[in-house]
């Protein structure tokens, strides 16, 4: 639920007491292709869907997918509406104060500016970014003119229709959009390294679940299947392990 911003319930259950976790509820945004999106059948699809299903198989968990709006995705995790966030969420210190992250499953990729023309004014122009992302935080801190939108899709639309001079977002997210635009959109300025890779967010009390996912991610890194999956969804030039 978008606005059910309930609590940072960091449940300090004594170690060892854990609910029988029959079903692990995987929370995602469903609006960030190719990482996660709702496909035309109305199901969650994308890199993280395939990865999550594979991780659950390796960890011998039964997983169920839940879609939640981006700007309330952390509050709804800690309040127990689902058990993991697997939504292209970068590992940051600020988020780590509230939730725990698994080992990164996707390396940190620099964030880039994308605009309609090569000489777009990044310093003085309007920069579109998704609300409560590391990118929007960066834009605000740098003193650039931030225009906030609820979804990534709307930030791109803002650049296309001239509302914003550039969009600032994750490079892997923008790459296919730039490639498909037939030269309408292009990367401008210098890439900015942000965040510490992408990981699965979990409640601090779920140490056991975290260990299972960590093990599964490590095994996928070791046998190369994770890299293969990244290349499959993000293309040959994607950053791999």
């Amino acid at each position: 639920m978008k606005k059910l911003i309930l609590s940072t319930a960091i449940v300090a259950l004594t170690a060892g007491v854990s609910l029988a976790q029959d079903v692990v509820r995987m929370g995602t945004e469903g609006a960030y292709p190719p990482s996660n999106f709702i496909n035309d059948k109305g199901e969650v699809d994308g890199f993280e869907r395939e990865l999550g299903d594979e991780l659950c198989k390796r960890a011998e968990l039964k997983c169920e997918w839940v879609v939640n709006e981006w700007d309330s995705i952390i509050p709804n995790l800690v309040s127990g509406n689902y058990d993991t966030i697997i939504a292209a969420m970068s590992i940051t210190d600020e988020r780590k104060e509230v939730i725990d992250f698994s080992e990164a499953y996707q390396p940190a990729t620099p964030s880039v500016f994308v605009a309609k023309s090569a000489d777009a004014d990044i310093k003085g122009g309007v920069i579109a970014a998704q609300t409560s992302t590391i990118q929007s935080g960066y834009v605000a801190e740098q003193g650039m003119t931030l225009a906030e939108y609820a979804t990534g899709d709307e930030t791109i639309a803002a650049v296309r229709n001239g509302e914003a001079d550039a969009v600032f977002a994750d490079g892997e997210y923008l790459a296919p959009i730039v490639a498909e635009s037939n030269g309408e959109l292009m990367v401008v300025g210098e890439p900015v390294p942000l965040g510490g890779g992408v990981g699965i967010g979990m409640r601090k009390s779920d140490a056991e679940l975290r260990a299972k996912f960590d093990a599964a991610i490590t095994s996928m890194k070791d046998d190369g299947s994770l890299n293969a999956m990244i290349v499959k969804w993000f293309g040959e030039n994607a950053t791999t392990w």
């Binding site: 606005k3 309930l6 609590s7 309330s72 605000a140 906030e148 939108y149 803002a158």
Partner: peptide, 24 residues
Amino acid sequence: FPAFRQQGDALYYASYFSAKTFNP
């Protein structure tokens, strides 16, 4: 309508606070 430079109306800031504090 998007908010520019985090300049919004009263409800924009009210929801900003409740999103940050998780306390309505």
